[in-house]
Simulated assay, not measured.
Amino acid sequence: MDVAAHHTRDWITMILLGVILLVIGLAVGVSLLTTIGGVLVLIGAVLWVLGATGRTIGGRKHYF
């Protein structure tokens, strides 16, 4: 498996885990799960966008 495919799975996993925790938190009414899920979705989306730009950001070529 190449490195790019592995890192792509990382942000997909983070976003999916965040969505699952967000839905469970909303269904059960546990605000901690909702907050953690929302943060994971947000961080996963930001890392996805930063990784997709292909430009060096903050001295690093890839953020994923």
Rank of each mutant, 00 (worst) to 15 (best):
V39A: 10
K61V: 13
L16M: 10
I43A: 04
T35S: 10
V41R: 11
G58Q: 05
D2P: 12
L47A: 06
L17R: 02
I36Q: 03
L22D: 06
G54L: 08
I24W: 04
G59R: 00
I24V: 01
H6R: 09
A45C: 09
L16N: 08
D2C: 07
L33G: 01
K61S: 13
V39P: 10
T8Y: 09
T13Q: 08
D10H: 05
H7M: 14
D2V: 05
V41P: 08
G37M: 05
V41N: 10
A4Q: 04
L40D: 13
R55M: 15
L40Y: 08
D2T: 09
S31T: 06
I15L: 08
G54K: 02
T34F: 11
T34K: 11
L26E: 01
W48K: 01
V39E: 08
L50S: 00
F64G: 13
L16D: 05
R9Q: 12
T34W: 15
A27H: 14
G38I: 01
G58S: 02
I12S: 06
A45P: 07
A4S: 03
G37K: 06
T53A: 08
G59A: 05
V3S: 12
G58I: 11
L22R: 13
G25T: 04
L50G: 00
G58D: 08
W11R: 12
A4H: 07
I57K: 00
V39K: 11
T56H: 07
G18D: 09
V3I: 15
R55I: 14
F64A: 13
T56G: 04
F64E: 14
T8C: 12
A27S: 14
I12N: 04
I20Q: 07
T53D: 10
S31I: 06
A45Y: 09
G58Y: 11
G37C: 05
T56K: 06
H62Q: 03
I36C: 00
V46R: 05
I12Y: 04
K61D: 15
A5Q: 14
